[in-house]
Structure formats: C-alpha cells, structure tokens
C-alpha cells in the first residue's frame, strides 16, 4: 500500500486516535486486529454466490429465500450480522422482464457478510447519485446493455435493510454442479451491475 503525503498525515492522526483510545482502555490493539482478520476472512462474495447457486438448483430454497432471506441463508450457515438485531436482508430476483440493481444513496449500506468489502465505485458520489436517476445509462457504463423492454428496479439500502440480487441462471448450465454454478456468480452480479 503506497501512501502519499496527505495520506501519511491522516495515518498519523489515526495512530494518535488509536493510541489515546487504547490508553483510555476503550479498545485494545488485539481487539482491533481480531476484528480486521475476522472481517477479511469471513466477508466474501463467495457467500452470496453459494446462496445464488443453491437457489438455482433448489426451487424450494429459492422460494424461501425470496420470502424470508434472513431465515433461508441460515440453512447455509450464513448470517448478515448487525449491532444488536440482525440486519434485514431482502433478495430480489432478476427475470426476463425485470433487472434489479442495489445502491445506498445516503452512504454505503451493503450486505458485507455476503458480498465482501464493497467496491470503491459503490461508495462513489457518481454511482449513488446517478443509478437512481439514469440506471440504464449507469449499467451500460458497466458494459451491461439491457433491452429496452427489460424494466429496471433500483433498491436503495438503509441502515436496517440490505438487498442482494439473485441473477438469472445462465443458459447452457444444466449439467453444472452447485459448486460450479457458484463459481459463475460475480460480486457485480450480486449488486446488479452485471448479468451474473
């Protein structure tokens, strides 16, 4: 990680803040390390991909997922986490006539546990401001050109509610195993800025 001059000044400021909080007994260095390691190890788009693959091969699971996602993902040992109550998850399914895409216009809310750390552009002012106004144009900037007769639904996340897209199963994948299917799913597909 290279750091320019401005970044070095901020790094020093963060170190001072951390030292003061450690000295005051509010947090410990070990605790911070543990938080980071757990986050980086557990939060991954592979979790979202597993959910999608299961929904593609198991119609009953798909129905439960669309009906009550928080309960359904427990079947795969997954959870959304949260401070006190678990964050609410809603999974929205793409069809031949409807494409879904998620955003957080107010900040950066995102199902971290299922999609991993969010991409830089998800947090950018450009994405947050424009995807709700000109979603078709924004998706085209990602290389996703949807036919005019496909409606686009944009889901604006909040502090309590998170969304994930269930992409359509690609044609010609009938012979693939659940694991192989999970391997086809990308983070962008789970956000809705890619088809799968």
């Amino acid at each position: 990680m290279s750091e320019d001059h401005a970044s070095t000044a901020i790094a020093a400021r963060v170190r001072r803040l951390e030292e003061r909080l450690v000295d005051a007994g509010v947090v410990s260095d070990a605790e911070l390390d543990t938080i980071l390691n757990r986050f980086l190890a557990k939060a991954s788009p592979l979790n979202g991909a597993r959910i999608v693959a299961r929904a593609w091969v198991d119609e009953g699971f798909r129905e439960r997922l669309l009906d009550d996602a928080n309960s359904a993902i427990k079947e795969l040992g997954l959870s959304l986490g949260g401070d006190h109550a678990e964050l609410r998850l809603r999974v929205v399914a793409n069809t031949q006539t409807l494409h879904n895409v998620i955003v957080c216009t107010l900040c950066s809310c995102y199902p971290l546990q299922l999609l991993g750390p969010s991409p830089s552009w998800y947090k950018s002012l450009a994405y947050r401001s424009r995807v709700v106004r000109v979603p078709r144009d924004v998706l085209a900037e990602f290389g996703l050109h949807l036919p005019d007769d496909v409606e686009i639904a944009v889901w604006d996340s909040s502090a309590e509610s998170r969304y994930m897209v269930l992409p359509m199963r690609p044609p010609g994948t009938e012979d693939k195993s659940e694991d192989e299917l999970a391997g086809l799913v990308t983070r962008e597909g789970l956000i809705g800025t890619a088809a799968v």
Binding site: L106, R130, R133
Partner: peptide, 10 residues
C-alpha cells in the same frame, strides 16, 4: 445525493 446531477460518470 440520490438523483443529483453533476458528479460525472461511474
């Protein structure tokens, strides 16, 4: 910022 203009392309 939802719906605001002027932030350029993604």
């Amino acid at each position: 910022v939802g719906g605001q203009t002027g932030f350029g392309p993604v």
